[in-house]
Design a protein around this nucleic acid. Structure first.
Length: 257
DNA sequence: CTGGGGATGGGGCCC
DNA sequence: GGGGCCCCATCCCCA
């Protein structure tokens, strides 16, 4: 299954990102998207400059700070002035630099009797300090980590490197000299060039077929297997591809059983 | 309609 | 931090 634990999925996990969806209404539309729609003009590599992404703290309805958001965190206030802006959010990370005792007293002043310690991130209250600290480490730390948002879509990443890699899917810096088609990564371009050259370096050990792409060879190898990799949980029929299993399930197998 | 091949995309891991 | 590679997934097309 997806190993993309670093990315916060906004799309259906079972569907690859479709950038045409950026033009359709979504639950949340980044103001940066609104600035670029309907046809975003995507600049070339300079997008990797600090203005290319928007490092923000992820605020949700559950972890909104008690005080009003700083103006520079407002979604409509534009880009942060610099990368260092994110450092001001560090104190939202529970384990790295917990709120001072004074902060906690301030929070607790608003609580009812028996609930003396309130989480500064999600406002949950606890009767003991240790209970509060445990809550912060288990539930709020992850949400309070810095995130890096894509300028061109609403995806967010926990690392700058992951964001840069993603941005390439918008800028498509690798261009085929033969047909002009652009790709996000060099190895994708290499695979594409094989469609021009006819090179098929991946050979099936069971038959004479060869493939230009390793993944396609892997899918082909499934056809040689009596028991395919993807099995229907209802009728136990196996399929060589996930898509075939999905088709099978959607065709009514689950209803029939 | 089903199964398979071709092409492509994306995130993670390793160096 | 970046490049290369891996694995997974998907779409399109065709037999």
């Amino acid at each position: 299954m997806p190993r993309s634990f670093l990315v916060k999925k906004h799309f259906n996990a079972a569907k690859k990102p479709n950038y045409s969806e950026l033009e359709s209404p979504t639950v949340f539309i980044s103001p940066y998207i609104l600035k670029t729609l309907p046809v975003p003009v995507i600049p070339q590599p300079e997008v990797l400059s600090p203005l290319a992404y928007n490092p923000i703290t992820v605020w949700t309805t559950s972890n909104l700070p008690l005080s009003p958001l700083p103006s520079d965190l407002s979604p409509i206030s534009g880009y942060p002035s610099s990368l260092s802006d994110t450092s001001s959010n560090k104190d939202h990370s529970g384990s790295e630099s917990p709120r001072s005792d004074e902060d906690e007293r301030i929070q607790s002043s608003k609580l009812s009797d028996g609930e003396k310690f309130q989480c500064s991130l999600c406002s949950k209250s606890y009767s003991t300090y240790s209970g509060l600290m445990k809550h912060k480490q288990l539930h709020c730390e992850a949400q309070s980590r810095k995130s890096f948002s894509c300028k061109y879509c609403e995806k967010e990443y926990v690392s700058l490197g992951a964001l840069k890699m993603h941005i390439r899917t918008h800028t498509l810096p690798c261009v085929c000299k033969m047909c002009g088609k652009a790709f996000s990564r060099p190895w994708l371009l290499q695979g594409h060039i094989r469609t021009h050259t006819g090179e098929k370096p991946f050979s099936c050990p069971h038959c004479s077929r060869a493939f230009a792409d390793r993944s396609n060879l892997r899918a082909h190898l499934q056809t040689h297997s009596d028991v395919k990799k993807y099995q229907c949980k209802n009728c136990s029929k196996t399929f060589s591809r996930m898509s075939l299993l999905h088709k099978h399930e959607e065709s009514g197998c689950c209803i029939a059983h």
